[in-house]
């Protein structure tokens, strides 16, 4: 049995399992912290920096998805500074690759777009990068458009940790990073891929998707919770 700790989030007293991260605990207590790369049920990355929070007594901000709770901790999830940081995080993601929502499969069903709206991103303060990655439509059922990938690695983690296959990984570094299948093979020829579709279900944007259907038809969110419920069955079972 793990120990229980007590902390406050936005002044609310909550109890949590020692070792759990702040984001998970906040969500369990119906306290909203925006997040993007976080995916319940798989390991945390702390990559997108949208889930930043303040902890009283520290001048720094912390990515709540990778910061474990501690006894007596006072977490602040909303402040002018946090909103400013989050907004920047979203803007930089949008600027990194060409996001043209009006013609995107994920339009209206995209977590990045949703957060942009929520955080009031109505224009970008930095120049956009117009990457021109080749699309991979070789898989019979799924499509991959790297130009919309935000490098959240959800697909990689879910493929590795839930499906147990690790057919997906990241190559290169920094802004040149790219999600690849097997050893940078075309998806349709990636031998380790089981075509389970979990990756496309958890992709928060229009980078991985089921072919031939606009996402408004796919209802990604429902698929995500489905995958995740399977996940908890697995771990509990």
């Amino acid at each position: 049995m793990s120990k229980t700790v007590e902390l406050t989030i936005d002044g609310k007293k909550v109890a949590a399992k020692e070792g759990d991260n702040i984001l998970k605990v906040a969500r369990e207590n119906n306290i909203y912290i925006p997040a993007l790369c976080y995916l319940e049920g798989v390991s945390s990355l702390g990559g997108c920096r949208v889930c930043v929070v303040e902890i009283r007594g520290s001048p720094k901000v912390f990515a709540s998805c990778v910061t474990p709770v501690a006894e007596g901790m006072e977490v602040i999830t909303d402040s002018e500074r946090l909103r400013r940081y989050r907004k920047w995080a979203i803007e930089l993601l949008l600027a990194e690759r060409p996001h043209v929502c009006s013609v995107c499969v994920a339009n209206g069903n995209c977590e990045l777009q949703q957060l942009a709206t929520e955080l009031g991103v109505d224009h970008l303060r930095v120049d956009r990068k117009w990457t021109n990655y080749e699309l991979d439509l070789t898989h019979e059922r799924f499509a991959y458009d790297p130009n919309r990938c935000i490098l959240c690695t959800r697909c990689i983690r879910v493929c590795d940790e839930v499906e147990g296959v690790h057919a997906i990984d990241l190559m290169l570094r920094g802004k040149n990073s790219k999600v690849i299948f097997d050893l940078d093979d075309k998806w349709g020829f990636a031998e380790s891929c089981t075509s389970c579709g979990k990756c496309s279900a958890v992709c928060p944007v229009g980078a991985l998707y089921v072919k031939g259907k606009p996402l408004s038809e796919v209802k990604k969110k429902e698929l995500v919770s489905f995958v995740m419920s399977r996940r908890s069955e697995k771990t509990i079972g």
């Binding site: 009006s102 013609v103 499969v105 021109n132 080749e134 699309l135 499509a143 458009d145 072919k211 031939g212």
Partner: peptide, 13 residues
């Protein structure tokens, strides 16, 4: 370079 099925959406713009 775009998938053909994106064309209705793209060209309608």
């Amino acid at each position: 370079g775009r998938p053909f099925y994106e064309m209705p959406g793209i060209t309608s713009r």
